[in-house]
Amino acid sequence: MSLRVAIMTDETGWHTGRLRKAFRARGVEARCVDLADCRIDTTWKPHGLAIPGFGHALPDAAFVRGIAGGTFEQVTLRLGILHALRESGVPVYNDARAIERSVDKSMTSFLLNRYGVPTPATWAGESAAHAQRVLMREAAAGRQVVMKPLFGSQGKGLMKPGVSLPALEAFSQVAYLQRYVDAGENGFDWRVLVIGGRAVAAMKRVGGEDWIHNFARGARCEPAELTPALAEISVRATQALGLDYAGVDLIPSEGGRPVVLEVNGVAAWRGLQTVTPLDIATLLVDDLLDRKLAASKGQLALAGNHERV
């Protein structure tokens, strides 16, 4: 019987098409599944999990390509499905714990700093008074600060507030502030893709809207040399968050030293694919099957041997 993999996504398109093709090439049946259609059902024997397209069985593995936004309760339940799959012995790539760390910018910053990964100074809290003091202190030192939504991607909602803190209502009552790193007049940032503990490809994102370099906001993708420094920092950032694969966003600081701005645990790669000859979907699928799934099967076999003893 061939392996069956669930591609967890709320929309099908270019990325899921590439993944399904790569799975097919390995003789694996891949089905796209919306987490919103899954459910925890303790009467659904034998696992208590109902995954559309898999009947009463579970997939051999799950690849998380997208998690739709929603209410706090909806997102919690969708992540709960991923937690439940892992608890049921299904390898999840990336699993819910790692995604939660990368989606929450404050936890990302905390973990990067904790594990010594170069990243800009960051402050996150609910006190508007404290955030205002940070802005004034940074301005007095001749520095700027970027304010970001705690959750979000593609450069949406970013602003440089100067010395006047905007109302926190627009940021869900949380102030996430990060020291601005000026990339210069011809500014750019890097996106490095890390798969299975190895940096595999890099690009520069040049231009875009003002100081925000993002492919979704008009930035131009250009090939970039994957230097040892870029690779080493990106791998360390991915390991700090416990991710199987990640898109790591970095920017050159003074002297050209790269620092990590964000780590994307549900990374898109369409822009990167345009500037690298590597088949990224194939690399992802191979890592899931040959490393993650193989390790899971090895653990199950070891557990079975212990039980027999």
Rank of each mutant, 00 (worst) to 15 (best):
I251M: 15
L243P: 03
P223Y: 09
E225Q: 14
S234A: 15
G242H: 12
G247E: 12
G242D: 15
T238D: 02
P223G: 07
T227C: 04
L243G: 01
L230T: 06
A246C: 12
D249G: 06
L250I: 04
P228Q: 08
V235I: 15
A231T: 08
R220M: 07
S234H: 14
L243C: 13
L241A: 07
A219H: 04
A231R: 02
V248A: 05
A240L: 14
L243F: 12
A246G: 12
E232D: 15
A237S: 07
Y245W: 12
P223L: 08
A219Y: 03
L250Y: 00
V248K: 09
A224G: 01
Y245G: 01
L230W: 13
S234M: 06
A224S: 09
Y245K: 06
R236A: 15
L226M: 06
Q239Y: 02
T238S: 08
T238H: 01
E232P: 01
G247H: 10
A237W: 14
L250R: 02
V248M: 08
E222S: 04
E232F: 09
R220F: 02
V248N: 11
A224W: 00
A231N: 05
R220D: 03
V235E: 14
Q239L: 14
P228T: 07
A219K: 04
V248D: 14
P228S: 10
Q239K: 13
R236F: 09
I251Q: 08
L241M: 08
L243A: 04
A237D: 06
P228K: 02
L230E: 11
D249A: 05
T227D: 07
G247N: 11
A229D: 15
A229C: 08
R220H: 09
R236V: 00
L243E: 03
R220L: 10
I251S: 07
T227R: 03
A246I: 12
Y245F: 15
T238N: 00
D244P: 01
E222K: 03
Y245S: 10
E232N: 10
I251N: 07
G242W: 09
A229Y: 01
A219D: 05
P228N: 10
Q239T: 11
D244L: 05
P228G: 07
A229Q: 15
P223W: 10
I251G: 06
P252S: 12
G247K: 07
P252K: 06
D249L: 04
R236T: 00
E225C: 12
G242T: 14
S234L: 01
A229M: 09
T238E: 01
E222H: 00
S234F: 11
A229W: 01
P223I: 07
T238M: 01
T238A: 04
D244M: 08
G247S: 12
Y245N: 11
A237F: 14
A246F: 14
Q239G: 05
L230H: 09
